[in-house]
Amino acid sequence: MTAFFAAEPEEAEALREALEATTPLEAPFPLHQGEGVLVAETGVGKVACALAVAHVLTRFAPKGSFFLGVAGALDPALRALDLLLAQRAVQWDVDLTPFGRAPGETALGVRFFPSDPRLLARAEAAARALGFPHRLGVVATGDRFLQDPEEAKRLRALHGADAVEMEGAAALMVAYRFRHPMALVRIVTDGAGEGAALDFQAFLREASRRLGRLARALLPYTEGG
């Protein structure tokens, strides 16, 4: 079984439709099952995300997972609806620097949590087959919607991040602790600067539709082992 996670209701609905995950399961968040797949709507933010991922991994022990969703671009070369295949993600709002840690470094001694390379390669192959513009990169995660262009520049310089969002590093951190293969894929909806909230709403529906198509395209790869 493969698990698919998304934070926003629109994202999760698109995944459920694309994957035909119509059977609701009992969980402290919306969770649906289809043939060989689970679709979890985690809710927004790191805590909600970590709860949902830990619940699914503990209760269902899926073979692998994909976290799909939207993000704001930090790299000005990224355009709306581009896919960013996250090689790793950092929690930009974690600050233990008074204790000698690097910015974003957790108490585990880990700063960047990685996507599973094999699953990320599958996502890249699926994106290529669909003709979706895509690239590899780094994601910065924090519990705040970023719309300050100067802060966006700072995060890019500090972490080498290409996009910013609110769940990915938390999901990958849980996967890391569970030794579970997971890949993080984000699609750009805004520029993480002034006007980001309006851009986010404008592109959310189309972005979610594309994520559904990507999830559907991933099925032959996930079923292939």
Rank of each mutant, 00 (worst) to 15 (best):
M1Q: 06
T2C: 01
A6Y: 06
A7E: 09
A12D: 09
A14Y: 03
L19G: 08
E20K: 15
E20A: 15
T22N: 11
T23I: 13
L25W: 09
A27F: 05
L31V: 12
H32E: 15
L38P: 11
G45H: 05
K46F: 03
A50C: 14
L51D: 05
S65M: 09
L68I: 09
A71S: 11
A77E: 12
R79H: 10
A80I: 08
L81V: 06
D82E: 08
A86N: 06
A86S: 14
A89P: 12
Q91D: 01
W92R: 13
D95H: 00
L96A: 12
T97P: 00
P98L: 14
F99I: 01
E105G: 04
A107C: 14
R111N: 00
F112D: 04
P117M: 11
R118N: 07
L119D: 06
A121G: 15
R128F: 00
R128C: 06
R128N: 05
A129H: 10
L130E: 09
T141I: 09
G142S: 03
D143C: 12
L155G: 04
H159D: 07
M166F: 10
G168S: 10
G168F: 08
A169Y: 08
L172K: 13
M173K: 02
Y176R: 12
F178P: 05
H180Q: 07
H180I: 00
R186S: 06
I187C: 07
V188R: 10
A192S: 05
G193E: 00
E194M: 03
A197H: 12
F203V: 04
L204A: 09
R209H: 13
R209I: 02
R210K: 14
G212L: 08
R216K: 15
A217F: 03
Y221A: 08
